[in-house]
Amino acid sequence: MTTGFQSAPDTPHYVDLRARLAKRDRGLRDKVMSLSEAIGTIADGDHVAIGGNTFSRTPFAAIWELVRQQKKRLTVSRSITSTEGDFLLAGGCVDKYMTSWFSQGILWGLSRVMRDFVENGKVTYEEWSHMSLGMMYRAGALGIPFLPTRVMMGSGMPEALVTSLETMTCPYSGDKLLLLPALNPNVALIHVQRADKYGNAQYDGLPFMDADMAMAADRVILTTEKIISNDDIRNAPDHTKIPFMAVDAVVEVPYGAAPHECAGFYEPFYKHMDEYADFTRKNGVPGALDYMQEHIFEPRDWTGFLKKLGVGLPN
């Protein structure tokens, strides 16, 4: 445990956090733009948080474009990581990865790509518990520097982190508590079923940590299966999970979570996921790069990638 005051690496000071928010144009304005334009706002070195979990409502098109734009030195956080983590690592985009779990999925076993990067020290890898990461986004969303919790104590996890964690004795109960630092990502990438042009976002199915992540972040890039009218939003405002004022870019991307799932629209593309697993099973990181060449770098646009998945979009 450390002494004295020092910010956890991904927790900006409150005054700076407020200043960054104050500079944003939070008005009710049209934020629709292209995928490349939206992802172009991400700077090398940013902390990028990824919505959804495992292969569910992953903002896959946004990650696909981020890898194509060859972003560098990112910190990436996502509590449960699947194939998108492989592409970000193998694509050379990541300096630091924060997660509770990393595998394509239990059916496919260990990630060859993650193993190569972590075992050979090519990435700073922080393993947190699932709830801990969730509470860190929540602390970020609440504008407080930490949340106390009763997990991760007695385990090896705190010692293995780069972040040095503090504990405290609760002044009310005398209980020992672990203090989870707030996480305020620079950018949150979130995929939803529907949103309006202002960024009012509604999603169905599992909500994951998206709302906390959005409110914690400096900026939110939203991809949506469909852009709907503001009237439709106002007719069902109780379904809006992320308000327009937190959103900076809205991109309409049909099948924007493919080959992962998007509730109510499509299930995971299991066959394609099997095919990707074959690439890495045979050939590790070079196998992943072969897949990426064919599926990420070569297609002219997102529609070109969808064709490879066997999805044809109506004109």
């Binding site: 509770s100 239990i106 260990l110 075992e119 801990s132 997990v151 991760m152 385990s155």
Partner: peptide
């Protein structure tokens, strides 16, 4: 060792939360 693991496994997920609580 966590500094030089072989292999690095998928990790806790919610496992640590369950067993802690």
């Amino acid at each position: 060792s966590y500094r030089q693991p072989a292999p690095r496994l998928p990790g806790s997920g919610g496992g640590n939360d369950i067993s802690s609580l």
